[in-house]
Design a protein around this nucleic acid. Structure first.
Lengths: 142, 142
DNA sequence: CTTGACCTTCGAGTATACTCCAATGATACG
DNA sequence: CGTATCATTGGAGTATACTCGAAGGTCAAG
């Protein structure tokens, strides 16, 4: 698969694909023409990138995990990666917990905002926001 | 409250506080000395900023909502804001739904990564990643 | 009345993740 | 063989959200 087909398949631009390569996240094969060729390995990699990016991982963090995935070195070498991963998962848990309760509050806020007597509802809205803020603090979200 | 106390209270830097002001998100009172003074209104605003930022709103979007919150203009004028808000909420719902199932998969991935026979587990990991990718596509997450 | 911790402005710099452009080369079709 | 569409490179530019530094003003305590 050449770059355009690959990019289109994964809903990104060719620029983004080349950028990921520059950042060491993708290593396509080179054809004699100099064209990049994307195989199964690249497809697995970009799937991994897209999923982890969506979960809030930075490209640098994704590279770390991809490197570990690609070469099964010593287990000690992988400790850093798995530790990062475990840490990220617990961060995500806190986030999901916050988001879940926050969405409910947001829906109430929205309904209060949509009412004509919006001004009267401001104290209620402020109360809901304050509660969400407290939730962030309690859950120690970054 | 002067800027340092205010920033410390909300776990941000004074630079960030000034930046938010430059971006029209905060409008502290000015003392005769030229010092910024942060009152109850500012505290409500920064709480709002922190909560919405955490939920993935950009500063531009937050300003839009803050502007609407501060001056109760015509309801038509607010439609843009409430529409944005409603849209953001449904985006969040999709995200939370994805995150919730993804966390479970991630925990399995982590346990597979931590095993000695890591190489053997790679197909399992790849399968889990692929499922998460499909979930992103199905839920139409940005 | 000086010292230290605060405050001010302005402008420039940083990090992340792209995004675009210009010049040029490769491949496929009618 | 032309031309359309793809590909290459390098380097510059963009958006967001800060972050820092320099030069200087304010103010309470000793």
């Amino acid at each position: 698969m050449l770059i355009k087909e690959f990019a289109t398949k994964y809903h990104v631009t060719t620029d983004t694909v080349r950028y990921y390569e520059k950042e060491g996240l993708l290593t396509p094969i080179r054809l004699e023409s100099g064209y990049r060729f994307y195989d199964e390995t690249c497809e697995k990699a970009i799937t991994f990138i897209i999923v982890l990016k969506q979960l809030g991982f930075s490209l640098a963090e994704i590279r770390l995990l991809l490197d570990m995935e690609s070469k099964p070195i010593s287990p000690e070498c992988n400790v850093a990666s798995t530790t990062l991963f475990a840490h990220k998962i617990s961060e995500l848990e806190a986030k999901v917990s916050f988001f879940t309760t926050a969405i409910h509050s947001l829906q109430i806020v929205l309904s209060l905002m949509e009412q004509e007597k919006f001004a009267e509802n401001k104290p209620k809205i402020e109360g809901l926001i304050k509660d969400m803020y407290k939730d962030i603090q309690e859950k120690g979200i970054e």
